[in-house]
Design a protein around this nucleic acid. Structure first.
Lengths: 329, 329
DNA sequence: CTGAAAGCGCTAACAC
DNA sequence: GTGTTAGCGCTTTCAG
């Protein structure tokens, strides 16, 4: 057997048609009769033909890839290896793209300044770009240069986006704690500039206002260390608190460690609700009650949207955030 | 300003040279005088020229990408989203590739049968393929069709590989427990077919033999649930055990939960050492003493090797596995 | 509905 | 050293 991969030329010859016709049926584009379609398909199967993606990309002016962009915002590349979010995004995207016969490309977007990285990604985009976690301003910039873009977090009005009910989730979390009889409920919030964190903060504020609870808040970022520190601090300032709402499971895992370190028990003395339902929630001890963010579903939906054609500007798709009860409450 | 991206033709014209010369300096290949190099470089900067990767790929017969392959072995795509390993691999690879001006492509390799997926990846490979976690047999198959391949786990003799000292790590872990005064040391092993797990098993056996310890083993897979189950089981069968060596942090996190659930304290009653030093280790409560696998370093080294040219068959690079002491011992 | 032919932007032989 | 030229394998007008 020949070592060379067959080209579309070979397929056309084998099927006794022109390259154009072969191309049409391979891309199942209109304009080919049933009999010819059958012959071409047979030839494809026979020769085990697989299109050369590079040639396709050049000819059509666009690689058949979905670009996933992760902006690091100077947090260093480390966060990618430690934060459970990104791999869930990939887990959602990969099967969809694979099923479509396209490919996944990873873009870092951390060169300095970020704007250049974003512009370059936009100019080279393939079938579409998925924004894993990006500021509205940057998303808008990218979307201006490349329409086929979807954000997985709340974003600028023009940019198509998958939106989870972070506000509602935070309300539900605090309410759950309240219903468990807790009244001294503290909160550990995420980064002040992160859209998800902002919404969870909003939800928290709304809930304590509604329930008539005091505002016992601290900032913890979205990492474990921040959670540990914030929890220690909170416990120092309010030794009588009996619950914590934490805006991220990773942070919550740190908070649990801090609570335990002060000799308190979870959930008996302090109960705690996290957010995300990531691997961190189930690794914590006790495992965390948390608000499930359907990251995989959102990423998969974003990908499908992109694969289906140009998403209309401002398109929105909404996702619920649901309570998952474990041992920490 | 024109919306069209400049081509190499534009650069050549602006610099007053031929396309070939422009190409040479852009790829900084030999065969261009200093003065011309300068003129071309100026034109590149001036026009903000960026090569069209699709055209490059087609002309040179190979896309400028590093392909990262994750084989799921029917575990479903979920593991990718929950197991901390894969994202550490990416965190190691991305900066290196980015610095080189190449791209990262993700390959799933889970179609049925796996062999086809592997063959297809080999036939379409770009600058090189990084095998995140693959059986020796599959790695060998891929390497046969594509020389520029590196495995991150112990693999077939012919396949270039990055090898961490898993055996030594396991020995060190058990020894650490022994030095802490523990004598009833149980072990929770990983999947019987996983090369890393096998080596850690070997190390464990070697250590208990050397130290004259009984073999108290159970199988836990590489996930949290398995760790929980195995630990409960072990505790049932050997209520007097005073330590556990667990072949994966995720599994160890589950084991800690199980130990706690039986009313025992970590590390007072049972101390525990994990393996990997992943995010799971620091999310556990208490945080886990563990054997650090330098995944990011290994992935980065593999990438550099690939980017430097075809790695010689059988090439090996060794990495230490070091003890990180935290609160679980 | 089908085929012929013109590139897509670049690399790499090959001449000069 | 430098330029000319022939493709890489495919998509996509444009005729027929």
């Amino acid at each position: 057997m020949s070592r060379e991969r067959p080209t579309i030329e070979d397929v056309a010859r084998a099927a006794g048609v022109s390259r154009a016709t072969a191309s049409r049926v391979i891309n199942n584009a209109p304009g080919a009769s049933e009999p010819l379609r059958a012959r071409v398909s047979a030839a494809v199967a026979d020769l085990r033909y697989q299109p050369n993606e590079s040639a396709r990309a050049l000819a059509s002016g666009r690689p058949r890839t979905i670009d996933v962009v992760a902006v690091t915002y100077n947090q260093g590349i480390g966060w990618l290896g430690t934060h459970p979010y990104f791999s869930r995004v990939l887990a959602g995207i990969l099967p969809v793209v694979e099923g479509f016969g396209a490919q996944v490309r990873l873009q870092l977007g951390d060169s300095d300044p970020v704007e250049h990285a974003i512009d370059e990604i936009a100019d080279h985009a393939g079938l579409g770009v998925v924004l894993a976690d990006i500021t509205p301003a940057l998303a808008a910039r990218l979307h201006r240069r490349c329409r086929r873009t979807v954000s997985l977090v709340r974003t600028a009005p023009s940019v198509p986006g998958m939106e989870a009910d972070n506000v509602g989730g935070a309300v539900a979390a605090v309410t759950h704690l309240y219903e468990r009889g807790r009244r001294r409920i503290a909160a550990i919030h995420g980064p002040a500039t992160n859209p998800c964190a902002i919404d969870r903060r909003t939800g928290h504020r709304r809930a304590i206002r509604t329930l008539g609870l005091p505002d016992l808040s601290a900032d913890g970022g979205f990492d474990r260390e921040g959670g540990y520190r914030a929890a220690r601090d909170l416990l120092d300032r309010h030794p009588d608190l009996d619950a914590m709402f934490v805006a991220c499971d990773l942070t919550a895992a740190g908070a649990v460690q801090a609570i335990t370190a002060t000799g308190r028990r979870v959930p008996d003395d302090v109960s705690i609700v996290g957010f995300d339902d990531s691997i961190a929630a189930v690794c914590a001890n006790p495992p965390l009650t948390t608000m499930r963010l359907p990251v995989e579903d959102m990423a998969a939906a974003a990908t499908r949207l992109l694969l289906a054609g140009d998403p209309p500007p401002g398109h929105r798709q909404h996702f619920p955030v649901t309570l998952v009860v474990r041992a920490s409450t």
